[in-house]
């Protein structure tokens, strides 16, 4: 199941928000590429979360979050344009009302378990398909993904890593990848095959509106 959580409504959904940050935390800890002492809840909530982004959350059958993604329009403040301002390749600054940025793709770190891998496939598929549908409803042309190495590798293994827009960039000692997705049928097919036949259909605009008031 896919739930869309507008940032301005986060106070209404404390369980979902807590779970999403916990998921980020466990993903960072699982990477073990930084001292554990440096990783806490504060380190996985960044400035961009305060900008009321739109969160796309993949929930399993028990309604626990198994995947999450954050969306921001590139006309405003974004990770690519602001967090990477000092390190981005020359003038890689994207500002368009028809392009949004997807960042903080986080997936439950349960890939080593064969039985659970299907859950991750489905989460990636449903998040991607929902992303495409939201983007179509907003008449966007493209979505840029700003993903860490872990998320990028999960997407790459499943053939949906998008098209690389630049060499990897460094942020807080992590390699970050910039991926381009074109909104439309190709993107939908790319993700829907992962979501499988039994997948929930991604939300349409009307459902999206009602999801604004989704309450547990």
């Amino acid at each position: 199941m896919i739930a869309l959580l507008p940032g301005e409504s986060r106070a209404l959904f404390p369980r979902l928000v807590d779970e999403m940050y916990d998921l980020r935390l466990s993903a960072v800890r699982a990477r073990r590429d930084r001292p554990l002492g440096a990783v806490n809840r504060l380190s996985v909530v960044d400035y961009f979360d305060s900008l009321d982004p739109l969160y796309v959350l993949a929930l399993d059958d028990a309604e626990r979050i198994v995947g999450a993604l954050r969306l921001l329009p590139t006309t405003g403040v974004t990770m690519l344009n602001d967090a990477f301002a000092a390190t981005a390749p020359q003038r890689l600054r994207i500002e368009s009302p028809l392009v949004w940025e997807a960042s903080r793709l986080t997936l439950a770190a349960i890939e080593n378990c064969q039985a659970q891998e299907r859950i991750i496939d489905r989460a990636i598929g449903e998040i991607g398909a929902a992303l495409n549908e939201i983007a179509q409803a907003a008449a966007l042309t493209h979505v840029i993904g700003v993903f860490d190495g872990n998320a990028q590798s999960m997407l790459f293994r499943r053939g949906c890593a998008g098209e690389s827009l630049s060499p990897p960039m460094s942020l807080d000692g992590m390699q970050m990848f910039i991926a381009l997705y074109e909104v439309g049928a190709t993107m939908d097919a790319q993700f829907m095959h992962l979501a499988g036949d039994d997948a929930c259909r991604p939300v349409n605009l009307a459902e999206f509106e009602s999801a604004r008031f989704y309450r547990r």
């Binding site: 368009s96 493209h142 098209e163």
Partner: peptide, 17 residues
């Protein structure tokens, strides 16, 4: 040295700029 979709992307960002 890229795809048609990247070409459309750079055209869109140029339009917006």
């Amino acid at each position: 040295g890229a795809s048609a979709r990247a070409a459309r992307f750079w055209l869109e960002t140029a339009r917006a700029r």
